[in-house]
Structure formats: structure tokens, C-alpha cells
Design a protein around this nucleic acid. Structure first.
Lengths: 245, 245
DNA sequence: CAGTGGTCTAGACCACAGC
DNA sequence: CTGTGGTCTAGACCACTGG
């Protein structure tokens, strides 16, 4: 009686966390909330929308509102260091991750003048040409990551990096053949809410942030040979970094 | 004329990105939108709420809705590696960050039985005691980070780590004196929307995600001596990682 | 087909800002 | 004090789901 949308949402949140509504379970619908709490339909809708915007639930129009479940992928930035023995600690999240396939789709390759940000990252002039490879990664048909990679065009001209299929070992193997093997990396990472376009491309439910990663790759000589801009569905990923200090 | 909330928000977003409304500028208010687009007040409110939930704007009740501006801090996980010459590439975001002071507040120290997650991370039994240090970091009076650090109680008993002030060089210097200097680290990172409590503690505007970092610290022998759980205001931080592979 | 979530309207009341 | 954002109501229409 005379509850507010926020209070109804709080109530439901408590019951979700208490396990009354396990992941995947349908929450009480708008008509039920209207009857139970004696509020208007719009208020009930607002309460559910709060939960959705918090990323706790998602709604299927015409069907219901359901508790979300998380099964994030684990992205280990530096695999080689991670393999050394000392880092054998247990994972904090998603320790029992089944191995799921990462499918690459929508590969596009073209050559453009270096955008400002890219030129600065790679140490180029803004008139210099860069090779752009963009692609989309899917897991179980669901997009989880957009990636756009830039290479100095003069460096990779004629190599398989300019093809859709970069060949065995991928782009890094080709760079190594060109005498420009990347061995050192810097990643800059932000998190924010997605734009509408980004939300569409990643098929993001409301209430899901994205993680934006800008990775610069260096050769042993300190030359910058790759700039990779990634956009991850934050609900689909746990990132892992290993380092010494 | 019969615009929907989403369309109005799209319109405003375009104009924001075009520079018509620079950061800090007040957006057209609800009454203005009602008149301009011929919609109901609730629709105008919904349009502005969309922008707020995207993190593009914030509203000051009684005053107006304003375009947000970002001035993130830069957190470099491994400072030592970052100092080496090869990583001298330009920063992608916030290149001209002024040096702002990170103030520590609300330090609480106590001893409890290890929570499950902590026990697993530190390789302890759940009956083992851990020393818990929790604190809040502020920049310009605004909270930007919550941190809770756990140490095996038997390791740090009697040291200054059990005090509010850990002394010169901080906790790591004390660990080094105990023969347990942390030199290797694993960080696991997630991003998600905050709970209501977390949003309050960090004074987060709506539409701001948090980044959750779990860091485990190892000695050269591979012993785990610290577990640090951090919660960052995503709008206030850019993270930077350096590594080889 | 009935039930669901999504959205809009028109009007109302409140708390707060800032003059 | 007036103007602002925040929220609620009661009723309406739509598109979609699922039996």
C-alpha cells in the first residue's frame, strides 16, 4: 500500500539476493505488483526498470521479467606470465568456467589515414596510412567483443595481415616474419555505459556497461607496431592481469 | 510533435556530441521539452533520465540537468615496469591530467574469520583469522575508491599493519620487514552497475558503473600474503597495465 | 486468443534551488 | 516566491509472447 517504485525494487532485490528468485526465474509481473502493492501500472513498470538498469534482471516483452545470470569469460592479458607456477592462486570469479568457443565474425579490412588517437598511439603523422582490421567476437551466437586493430600501412603492406585470413599463428606471427614481433604491451582500460550503437552491436541488455581497452604493442626495440581498440560486454568478461613490481 | 522519449534523447545526444552543449552546460529543462516537442512532462522527464542513465548527463533537482564532464585519474598497476623506456607511448585518454591528491579516509582495522572468497584467494582455511583493513579514497572531497585488504592474521600480528597508520613506506614496507615482501601480483577485474549501497558510499551519479578489482600479492617464494578488493568509480579512473608476453 | 511489458498522456503533489 | 526535477496516478494504446 502506497509503496514507491524504489521501495518495491528494494524489496525484490532483497528477495533475489536471498535466493527466492534464482537466475533465470521469472519475477512477479506488473499486474501482480499492481495488485500486491496497490500502485499504478507505471510505478510497477518503474520498479522493474530499476532492476533492469542495475543489471540484475532483463525483460522479455510479452513474456516477463527475469533474473539475470552471469557466466563471464576469462580474458588473461598476458598468458605467458600466467603460466608460471607462482600464480597458481584460485580464481576469484567464475572458477569453473567451461571452455566456450570464441567465434570471429564480420571481419573488415581497409586502409585509411590514421585517426588522431591512432596516430598518437603509434607515433605516426596524421597523413600516414594505417591498415584497419575490425571484427566482432561471438560466443554461443552472442556478440561479446568488438575489436579494431591498426597497423602502420607501410609495415604490413603485402603481408597476410592485409587479408581477411591472416594465416597460421595470426597477425603476430606475420609481424614476427616481418622482423617486428610484438613482445611488450600497454593496455589502457576504461568502463562506461555504451552508446546506443554500441549497445546494438553487442546486443547488450540495459544496465550493462562496456569495458574499453586500448592496447599498444611494442617490439623489443621499442617500436610501436600495433594499436588495438577493444569494446567488451562487461557482463561477459572477467579480465586478468599478471605482473611484477 | 509526437516525438517519443527515445527520439528526444537521441536528438539531445547528437547535439551534445556536436558541441552545442559542452560539459557542464545546462540542457533544456522539462518544461522546454514539453513545449518544443509537444509531449507530456513525464515523457520529457523520461528523455532526460535516459541521458542520465547513459552517464552523459546528471541532474540537480530544483536546478536543471547538465552535461557531465570526465577527468579520470590514471591508475598504473605496475609502476616499475611503466618507468622503463620502451613504454613511452602517448596516453590515449586524459593525457593532460593535473596531479590531484588522493586522500585516505574512514580507515577501519579489525580481525575476523576469513570469508570464503578471501580464504580461497590466500590459501587459508575458513577458520583462519585475517586482518581486515578497509578504507575510502577521496579526490577533491569526492570518493573515488573503496578498498578492503586482507592479511593472514598470523603473519602481520604485532606489526604496524594492525595500526591505522602503517608507517613510512606503508604496508608493503612492513611486509618486507617481516620477510614477506610482495613482488608479484595477479589482478582480476570486473565491471558492473553498483548496488544502492555502493552508489551511496561512492556518491555515484546514476549511469556510472563500478570496476571491481581483486588483487592477490605473492612473495618471491610464491606465498600469498595479501588480498585486496577494490571498488572504483568507473567514471573517475583509467587503468593502465604494462606487461610482456 | 488473453496476458505481458513498453510507452504515452494529463494532471497532481512534493522537495529543493536560487533569486 | 517561482521554477525546477522527481515521482505517482489512472487510463489508454501498441507489439509481442505463448498456449
Amino acid at each position: 500500500m502506497a509503496e514507491t517504485a524504489r521501495q518495491i525494487a528494494d524489496d525484490l532485490r532483497v528477495r533475489i539476493e536471498a535466493g527466492e528468485f534464482p537466475p533465470g526465474k521469472r519475477l512477479p509481473g506488473e499486474p501482480a505488483l499492481v495488485k500486491q502493492y496497490g500502485v499504478a501500472k507505471m510505478t510497477a513498470n518503474g520498479a522493474l526498470k530499476l532492476l533492469v538498469n542495475e543489471g540484475l534482471a532483463y525483460s522479455k516483452p510479452g513474456s516477463g521479467t527475469y533474473v539475470r545470470d552471469f557466466q563471464p569469460l576469462r580474458r588473461v592479458a598476458n598468458k605467458r606470465m600466467a603460466r608460471t607456477g607462482w600464480s597458481s592462486g584460485q580464481s576469484v570469479w567464475s572458477p569453473d568456467l567451461g571452455r566456450r568457443d570464441l567465434v570471429v565474425a564480420d571481419i573488415r579490412v581497409n586502409e585509411v589515414a590514421a585517426p588522431r588517437q591512432v596516430a598518437r598511439a603509434l607515433g605516426l603523422d596524421s597523413q600516414d596510412l594505417v591498415l584497419v582490421r575490425s571484427r566482432r567476437f561471438l560466443v554461443d551466437e552472442k556478440p561479446v567483443q568488438l575489436a579494431t586493430t591498426y597497423y602502420p600501412a607501410s609495415l604490413v603492406a603485402g603481408s597476410a595481415i592485409t587479408q581477411q585470413n591472416t594465416g597460421p599463428g595470426g597477425a603476430y606471427a606475420r609481424l614476427a616474419e616481418l622482423g617486428a614481433e610484438p613482445v611488450q604491451f600497454v593496455e589502457e582500460l576504461r568502463s562506461r555505459m555504451p552508446s546506443g550503437t554500441e549497445a546494438d552491436l553487442l546486443a547488450l541488455p540495459a544496465g550493462t556497461p562496456v569495458m574499453e581497452i586500448c592496447r599498444t604493442a611494442f617490439t623489443a626495440d621499442g617500436d610501436r607496431v600495433e594499436f588495438n581498440q577493444m569494446l567488451l560486454d562487461a557482463g561477459s568478461y572477467v579480465l586478468e592481469y599478471h605482473f611484477t613490481s
